[in-house]
């Protein structure tokens, strides 16, 4: 045995930024997360050159998966061109040599803050959702040891109580984002603060989803073909946002999740939240060959 056989040549940086031991730890936890869908697995959450709370959890999962042939798309509330998304995407390609894309259909790896693209993800694609607060029980149980025990007992009654109180007070369920959902009939997870519009996209999907919270140091997963059922009462059905009839003022596209833009006259204009879908629609209207893939929603209705 020689020193040379125990050491490695000096490198300015590990491939994909994270060192090998960080990747191994993440790999072990990601496998456990897949094996128990929706169950939060603790992990070390290494330092990355970004402040916690800005997508470090998603970033670490993405960095572990990256290889030179990866094609990465990063979105922030549906937009590819926001500062956060653009910075993460350029960081990912700089440290790995992976290709960047805005096109949902071309991406092999999609890191997202709070949206799932409107075009259907296919088998082989991986969606990585950034999660600020992974614990669905936190509003009802701030003590995380007790919350863990509640998950172990599948004791989710108090989450239903919240929903019930909202109906009593407001006449409808007020959970706008991060709607608590039962995964594989066992663990309730928070699907990250995606709008209700996006929750059905996780149910029996073709793609693999990782959800990772860097600040809270927990990750969980939804494998393909896994049941994800929003918590509802049998007589009060789950409703997505009422965006089916809205039209995007830039692309003219109708029937998808919209951003509301307040206008000077007190009214609102709407634009597609999934910005690249809008770009594709505009290009198509201008006669360019740009393919829009199959979408989860058709004519504003879940297909």
């Amino acid at each position: 045995m020689s020193i040379a056989s125990l050491t490695k040549a000096w490198q300015p940086m590990s491939y994909g930024f994270l060192d090998a031991s960080a990747k191994r730890e993440l790999r072990r936890k990601m496998l456990k997360a897949i094996a128990v869908p929706g169950c939060q697995m603790p992990y070390a959450s290494r330092e990355v050159p970004m402040a916690r709370g800005w997508g470090t959890g998603g970033l670490q999962v993405t960095l572990t998966l990256l290889k030179p042939s990866s094609v990465v798309k990063v979105i922030d509330q549906g937009a590819d061109d926001s500062v956060n998304a653009a910075s993460i995407r350029s960081f990912l390609s700089k440290v790995s040599g992976a290709a960047e894309t805005w096109d949902t259909l071309a991406a092999s790896l999609i890191q997202s803050r709070h949206r799932i693209p409107e075009e259907r993800l296919h088998a082989g694609q991986i969606l990585v959702l950034q999660v600020p607060n992974p614990e669905p029980l936190r509003p009802v149980e701030p003590n995380m040891s007790i919350a863990r025990q509640m998950h172990a007992d599948a004791d989710y009654g108090r989450l239903w109580l919240i929903l019930y109180e909202q109906i009593v007070r407001s006449g409808r369920i007020m959970e706008g984002a991060a709607y608590p959902s039962l995964v594989n009939g066992r663990h309730v997870m928070t699907p990250s603060p995606i709008p209700r519009w996006d929750v059905p996209k996780l149910h029996m999907a073709q793609h693999l989803t990782f959800l990772s919270a860097g600040r809270e140091k927990r990750l969980y997963a939804v494998p393909p073909f896994t049941k994800v059922e929003p918590l509802v009462f049998s007589d009060v059905p789950f409703k997505v946002e009422d965006h089916g009839a809205l039209t995007c003022h830039r692309s003219g596209v109708k029937g998808f999740y919209m951003n509301e833009i307040p206008q000077g006259d007190g009214g609102s204009a709407y634009e597609l939240s999934d910005s690249h879908l809008g770009i594709k629609a505009i290009r198509q209207a201008e006669g360019e060959a740009d393919r829009i893939g199959a979408t989860w929603y058709q004519n504003g209705q879940s297909a």
Binding site: S14, Y15, G16, A20, L31, I34, T64, L65, S96
Partner: peptide, 20 residues
């Protein structure tokens, strides 16, 4: 353009197979 060494490429591909 960073290039993975043989170890990194191998372990990455192994994990991808295990993950799927």
């Amino acid at each position: 353009v960073p290039v993975p060494d043989a170890f990194e490429a191998r372990t990455n591909a192994t994990f991808e197979a295990l993950m799927w």
